Simulated scan of single mutants.
Amino acid sequence: MPLIFRRVRDNRLVTLKIDITEGPAPYEQVRAQISEQARSGGLPVGYRLPTVRGLAERLGLAAGTVAKAYRALEADGVIETRGRNGTFVAAAGAAADREAAAAAQVFVERVRRLGLSEPDALAAVRDALRAAYRG
């Protein structure tokens, strides 16, 4: 069922489509779609998201499902909660890039300690990415 948000700045529409019958868990669908739209600019920095209960009601999901997605998005730096003022899209692009670079550095240090060659390390990353994006 699509949920349509009206953007504040230019009145374009942004949608979420959640399929509860197949695919990833509903909270993961909410998380992934909001994350992608925030990173692509579909949801602009500073955009105020619906409340957990409001979004859950519109999507026909449990509030705990949406809350779990919001917690994951906040942990990833995609959104920020400002207490009673609401939940907003954060300037996540740069934060995500910094976090990915830090994770890559930790990985590099670990594979060097293990004595893996660069081709073996890259193969491990490719395998992990394929597994992550398949499931």
Rank of each mutant, 00 (worst) to 15 (best):
T81K: 13
I20S: 05
G135A: 13
A72N: 12
E80S: 12
S35R: 15
R48V: 01
A67E: 14
G46F: 06
V52W: 00
A25W: 04
G42H: 09
I79V: 15
A132R: 14
T81H: 12
A121M: 02
G115T: 07
A75I: 04
Y70K: 03
A75H: 12
Y27W: 14
G86V: 13
Y27S: 10
F107H: 06
D127I: 02
Q105P: 00
P119Y: 15
S117G: 11
T51L: 09
Y47D: 07
A72Y: 08
T87S: 07
L116Q: 12
A32S: 14
A56L: 03
V52R: 04
Q105I: 00
G54Y: 01
E99F: 01
I18G: 02
A69F: 03
D97W: 11
P44N: 04
V111L: 03
A100F: 12
L16I: 13
Y27G: 01
R84A: 13
D76N: 11
V111H: 01
R71L: 13
G64A: 11
V108Q: 14
R48K: 15
I4T: 14
L3M: 05
G23Q: 00
R110D: 13
M1Q: 09
D76A: 14
F88G: 07
D120V: 00
Q33I: 06
A131Q: 07
L114E: 12
V125K: 03
Q29R: 03
P2S: 10
A124C: 03
Q37M: 14
Q29I: 05
R9C: 02
I34C: 15
D97A: 12
V89Y: 00
R39F: 11
R9E: 07
G41C: 02
V14A: 15
P24V: 06
Y27F: 10
T87A: 08
R31V: 03
L59Q: 08
R48C: 09
T51A: 11
A121Q: 08
A124F: 00
L49M: 13
L43C: 10
P26F: 05
E118A: 12
L55N: 03
F88S: 09
S117M: 08
A95E: 05
E99K: 09
V78N: 02
L116R: 12
I18V: 12
P50Y: 05
Y70W: 04
T15I: 09
V30T: 10
G83C: 08
L61M: 05
L122E: 08
R113A: 12
D76L: 10
P44Q: 04
A95K: 11
V45K: 05
Y133K: 14
L3I: 08
E99S: 12
P24A: 06
Y133Q: 15
L116V: 01
Y47S: 04
V66K: 04
L116P: 02
N85H: 08
A101C: 02
A96F: 01
A67Q: 14
M1G: 11
P2T: 14
D10K: 07
M1C: 06
R58M: 11
E109S: 03
R6F: 05
A101H: 14
S35D: 11
D76F: 02
V30Q: 10
L59A: 13
V78Y: 00
G83W: 04
E118V: 15
A90E: 07
A101Q: 15
A104T: 10
L43W: 08
S35F: 01
D10A: 03
